[in-house]
Computed example of a mutant assay.
Amino acid sequence: MRGQRSVRPVAALVPAVAVGLLLLVWASVSDRIAVVSPSGRKLSVNRRPVPQSYLPSPQPDPLEQARRRGEQSGLDLSWIGDLLAWAVFLAMLVLLLLLARWVWQHRWRRPPTPSQTDAEVLPEARVSRALSEDAPALLAAIGDGEVRNAIVACWARLEETIAAAGLPRLRHETSAEYVVRVLHRLDLDPRTIGRLAALYREARFSEHPMGEDARAGAREALERLHDELRQSGALR
């Protein structure tokens, strides 16, 4: 659409310039337009007068009478040709200027150099940064309340942090499968991930009492994950 719109001005100017040239040529060669006013001088030759008795009485010519009446009234229409010629000339000049302006506006330009932009942050980097910022809250969740509820709450917060960082959960995934998959993408120790996931499944689906050793194991696994992220440069 943009290319078609840019061609329309040229398509309109070319016929207009052609018509103007034809009018100018017609005005210059046509006998109907008097571009230069007649001087009115006549060539006179001395001849012997002929007696009026030998000459037939001239018949009045309507055209000659109209011409004489125009000369007597002083009406000179030769300026109309000059005006028309100048009008055509000025119209052609305006059209040429518009055409030159269009060509100048649509001339080839070197494409601008793209400005330097920051590289797009990968989803894994966003997850690592989110875990770094939320590390104190995750550790605090493990130490708050009963052991089973504390581990489940810590895992739920871990899931929410990962989802907010831009890696959504797939439809067929469970909560444990989702968190484990994302943590594996961060290239962390799979043994530490597996231990933390096993403690979550035990706290979530078992009914037997869980002691403080389970809380300590979950805290230790979470701290190791943070240490690995720190060593990889994700945490500062």
Rank of each mutant, 00 (worst) to 15 (best):
residue 6 S to K: 14
residue 8 R to V: 11
residue 14 V to K: 07
residue 17 V to D: 09
residue 17 V to K: 05
residue 18 A to D: 05
residue 19 V to E: 14
residue 20 G to W: 05
residue 21 L to W: 08
residue 22 L to S: 11
residue 27 A to S: 13
residue 31 D to M: 00
residue 32 R to T: 08
residue 33 I to N: 11
residue 35 V to F: 14
residue 39 S to E: 12
residue 41 R to C: 03
residue 42 K to C: 05
residue 45 V to A: 14
residue 49 P to Y: 07
residue 51 P to L: 14
residue 52 Q to Y: 01
residue 53 S to N: 09
residue 54 Y to Q: 15
residue 58 P to Q: 13
residue 59 Q to M: 11
residue 59 Q to V: 13
residue 69 R to W: 08
residue 69 R to M: 08
residue 70 G to I: 00
residue 73 S to Q: 12
residue 73 S to D: 13
residue 74 G to Q: 08
residue 80 I to V: 14
residue 82 D to W: 08
residue 84 L to E: 03
residue 84 L to Y: 08
residue 85 A to G: 10
residue 90 L to G: 14
residue 92 M to Y: 00
residue 95 L to C: 11
residue 96 L to E: 05
residue 96 L to Q: 09
residue 98 L to A: 15
residue 98 L to H: 01
residue 100 A to S: 05
residue 102 W to V: 06
residue 105 Q to C: 04
residue 107 R to M: 02
residue 108 W to V: 09
residue 111 P to F: 03
residue 113 T to R: 14
residue 116 Q to F: 02
residue 116 Q to N: 00
residue 116 Q to C: 03
residue 119 A to R: 14
residue 119 A to H: 04
residue 120 E to L: 15
residue 120 E to N: 05
residue 122 L to V: 04
residue 124 E to W: 00
residue 129 R to S: 01
residue 132 S to I: 00
residue 134 D to N: 13
residue 135 A to N: 03
residue 135 A to S: 12
residue 139 L to D: 10
residue 141 A to G: 00
residue 144 D to L: 10
residue 145 G to I: 02
residue 147 V to Y: 01
residue 148 R to N: 01
residue 151 I to C: 01
residue 152 V to N: 08
residue 153 A to R: 15
residue 156 A to D: 11
residue 158 L to H: 03
residue 160 E to S: 14
residue 160 E to T: 12
residue 160 E to R: 11
residue 163 A to G: 04
residue 163 A to N: 00
residue 164 A to F: 06
residue 165 A to G: 02
residue 165 A to N: 02
residue 166 G to S: 06
residue 167 L to T: 10
residue 170 L to V: 06
residue 171 R to N: 12
residue 176 A to R: 07
residue 181 R to N: 05
residue 184 H to L: 15
residue 185 R to D: 12
residue 186 L to E: 03
residue 191 R to Q: 11
residue 192 T to M: 10
residue 194 G to K: 04
residue 195 R to K: 09
residue 196 L to S: 06
residue 196 L to M: 12
residue 200 Y to E: 09
residue 203 A to T: 00
residue 204 R to G: 00
residue 207 E to W: 07
residue 209 P to H: 11
residue 209 P to T: 10
residue 210 M to D: 00
residue 212 E to D: 12
residue 214 A to L: 05
residue 215 R to W: 02
residue 215 R to Q: 00
residue 220 E to W: 03
residue 222 L to C: 04
residue 222 L to Q: 02
residue 223 E to G: 03
residue 224 R to A: 14
residue 225 L to A: 01
residue 227 D to G: 09
residue 228 E to N: 07
residue 229 L to S: 06
residue 232 S to M: 08
